[in-house]
């Protein structure tokens, strides 16, 4: 019989790890892109305008782009904050991976790091990073 021992085989944990692997891969890929192209010239998806306009309609405070420079995770994840973001997120079900777990920097003037990363949904990541990119907050990352 085969030596493969099903009783000792693990897989559940590994499947969970795959999601983390993808989130980190996404973070690394995005960071590399920002180091190659100025954020102000980068589009994230073909829905950028739609995401941006909806964000400003639902969260008028982002009209001041500096609001996106420093995120307050506690506010975003408070009961009220969650409710507002949920309503926003549900408008983008047509976008691929809209609710996929994605790492988001809390401060746009720092790189990804232990104290500068929060967990968000992909559509939240798009919304915040579009504001940051359009207002030039990410241009410092580009080395060119």
């Amino acid at each position: 019989m085969a030596k493969f021992n099903a009783e000792e085989a693990e897989n559940f944990e590994d499947i969970e790890k795959q999601f983390a692997v993808k989130a980190v891969h996404q973070m690394e890929t995005y960071w590399k892109l920002l180091s190659l192209i100025k954020g102000s010239k980068l589009t994230l998806t073909k829905y950028d305008d739609e995401i941006y306009d909806t964000l400003l309609a639902d969260f008028p405070e982002f009209k001041d782009s500096q609001v996106a420079a420093v995120l307050n995770e506690d506010d975003m994840k408070s009961k009220e904050g969650k409710e507002r973001w949920r309503n926003f997120c549900e408008k983008f079900k047509h976008i691929e991976d809209y609710n996929f777990g994605t790492l988001l920097r809390t401060h746009s003037n720092e790189e990804y790091g232990e104290h500068n990363t929060m967990f968000s949904l992909r559509i939240q990541f798009y919304a915040i990073e579009i504001v940051r990119n359009r207002s030039g907050q990410n241009d410092w990352i580009c080395k060119k």
Binding site: K22, H25, Q26, T29, Y30, L44, T45, Y47, E96, D97
Partner: peptide, 15 residues
């Protein structure tokens, strides 16, 4: 395939 999402497109081709 990824609606012009550069990050997703690069991820697909580099995995």
């Amino acid at each position: 395939a990824h609606d012009s999402d550069l990050v997703n497109a690069i991820m697909e081709l580099s995995s």
